[in-house]
């Protein structure tokens, strides 16, 4: 037993648990929680109106009124980052939700029905793998226009094959377990077995997959916003802010791009580390 573990004994349960998880993960967890809180209450805690321009206070440096300074039109950078948190987290959350639901549906259908259905679905999944998420998103934007919805839907579809492939093999293993056969003998329908038993038993793996995907989805969506294909200005979004600030860098005002870029990196790293940790936990729980 290490010194840290010894020291952790006798402390309240929360602290002991935190110590056993490791300070890095605790820190990342706190960052994630803080971001989620800001995403919810952002518009109320922002010190300024994120879209109000001010011709006099252009490119202001850090000051008590503008903690992170202002951008090329005098808008408060901190307020824009705070208000932009909601859309920057909601996008990846939706991608994870949609791709997980679709992926579970594909995986369970393929595993349960087997035969030609399985073969056909597996082939579709293989072919979807050939489409990088960014390409699907770009095609979607070309068809339906820029904005929040097209890239989110396109990325969700692009993430389905990853979810489906992992869950399909797990679902096949689960389907071959004796308890499923027992339920069938008792006359349970395929639907009820799938929904009441198969899917709930796959949940640990589903959560693990979702947790890991979140950071990647966030990165992809931020890149799409940066390219100008996602949320449109003047709505504050981290990716958009990085792009909007870029022309000013050469004039010696890198604040906006750097702060927004840094925030993307910090958020992605925090969610990734926490996600991987959650995944480890749930995968061992799933393996029993």
């Amino acid at each position: 037993m290490s010194a840290a573990q010894l020291a952790a004994r006798g402390r309240p349960d929360v602290i002991r648990r935190a110590a056993s998880i490791g300070p890095l993960y605790v820190f990342c967890g706190v960052v994630c929680l803080a971001l989620i809180v800001v995403a919810v209450v952002g518009p109320w805690i922002a010190p300024h109106d994120p879209t109000r321009t001010d011709v006099i206070e252009v490119f202001a440096g850090s000051s008590p009124t503008h903690l992170l300074g202002t951008d090329d039109t005098g808008r408060d950078i901190l307020s824009r980052l705070i208000v932009g948190t909601r859309v920057s987290l909601a996008g990846p959350a939706l991608v994870v939700l949609l791709s997980t639901v679709l992926g579970v549906a594909v995986a369970v259908t393929a595993a349960w029905l087997g035969g030609w259905v399985d073969a056909a679905l597996s082939r579709v999944v293989d072919i979807l793998f050939a489409f990088p998420g960014l390409i699907l998103a770009v095609v979607a934007v070309a068809l339906f226009g820029t904005g929040f919805v097209s890239p989110v839907v396109a990325l969700s579809i692009a993430y389905v094959p990853v979810v489906a492939r992992v869950l399909r093999s797990a679902a096949i293993k689960e389907r071959n377990l004796p308890y499923i056969a027992a339920l069938r003998v008792q006359g349970a329908s395929g639907w009820s077995i799938c929904f009441k038993h198969l899917v709930p038993n796959l949940m640990p793996l589903v959560v693990a997959q979702a947790a890991v995907s979140f950071g990647y989805a966030m990165l992809d969506l931020a890149a799409i916003s940066y390219l100008g294909l996602g949320i449109q200005p003047p709505s504050p979004d981290w990716g958009v802010m990085v792009a909007e600030g870029q022309p000013s860098i050469i004039n010696g005002y890198p604040q906006q791009s750097l702060y927004a870029g840094l925030l993307v990196v910090v958020a992605v790293v925090a969610f990734n580390l926490v996600g991987e940790r959650v995944a480890q936990r749930f995968e061992t729980a799933g393996a029993r």
Partner: peptide, 14 residues
């Protein structure tokens, strides 16, 4: 690993 292309790009530009 934590440096996405577009963030690396703006850091380089700066």
């Amino acid at each position: 690993m934590a440096a996405p292309t577009f963030v690396a790009a703006i850091v380089f530009v700066w």
